[in-house]
Simulated assay, not measured.
Amino acid sequence: MDTLYATATPTVVAPGDAKARRFLDHLMARVGVDGLVAALRHPELLTLVRLHAAEVRDSVAFDAVTVEPVALADYAAEILADGMRTGRLLPTEPGEVDWREAEWYLLRLVAVCAVAAESDCL
């Protein structure tokens, strides 16, 4: 099983569509599910996640529409690497994050998960 981590060079550890999908699936399990559930419960958080998702799409969409799993996974790895460089790690336990007070990088990762789900990248 691939571990979820980022390297100093923002790329998914093992490139390829299937591995990118596993990476995104693992990210969904770590932050996406809890973050998206919280967003559905809190309209202001949902608005923030939607804004982040729009920025994610703008950054990774191939032809302004198509989102590829590898590009999305690489983008998420870059966010993870930036977080790690500043001492910000993913939560280790469900319910550990107060999503209404979540830091930017966690909201961006939740948005990556939302885009992955809507783009059939999981």
Results as ranks from 00 to 15, higher is better:
residue 32 G to D: 09
residue 25 D to Q: 07
residue 39 A to E: 09
residue 49 V to S: 09
residue 14 A to L: 08
residue 43 P to L: 11
residue 59 S to Q: 04
residue 93 E to V: 10
residue 82 D to L: 05
residue 64 A to T: 13
residue 85 R to W: 05
residue 50 R to W: 07
residue 19 K to C: 00
residue 95 G to R: 14
residue 21 R to M: 01
residue 78 E to N: 06
residue 28 M to C: 06
residue 60 V to R: 10
residue 34 D to Y: 07
residue 98 D to P: 08
residue 102 A to P: 09
residue 69 P to Y: 00
residue 13 V to E: 06
residue 85 R to P: 00
residue 93 E to W: 05
residue 26 H to V: 06
residue 84 M to E: 14
residue 86 T to P: 00
residue 37 V to C: 15
residue 82 D to C: 12
residue 80 L to G: 04
residue 59 S to H: 01
residue 99 W to V: 14
residue 36 L to N: 04
residue 35 G to I: 10
residue 61 A to I: 04
residue 60 V to L: 03
residue 39 A to H: 11
residue 77 A to H: 03
residue 23 F to K: 01
residue 33 V to W: 13
residue 37 V to G: 12
residue 17 D to V: 03
residue 92 T to D: 12
residue 45 L to S: 08
residue 87 G to L: 08
residue 85 R to D: 11
residue 30 R to D: 12
residue 63 D to E: 06
residue 50 R to N: 13
residue 27 L to T: 03
residue 48 L to R: 15
residue 40 L to E: 14
residue 98 D to T: 13
residue 68 E to R: 08
residue 36 L to Q: 08
residue 19 K to F: 00
residue 84 M to Y: 12
residue 42 H to W: 05
residue 18 A to F: 00
residue 10 P to F: 06
residue 17 D to S: 02
residue 18 A to K: 03
residue 64 A to R: 15
residue 74 D to H: 04
residue 27 L to Y: 07
residue 29 A to L: 06
residue 47 T to P: 02
residue 77 A to C: 07
residue 18 A to R: 05
residue 100 R to K: 15
residue 102 A to S: 12
residue 75 Y to A: 03
residue 10 P to G: 15
residue 73 A to Y: 01
residue 21 R to H: 04
residue 83 G to M: 11
residue 42 H to V: 06
residue 70 V to C: 00
residue 61 A to G: 08
residue 91 P to I: 03
residue 71 A to L: 05
residue 46 L to R: 15
residue 30 R to P: 04
residue 35 G to Q: 12
residue 25 D to M: 03
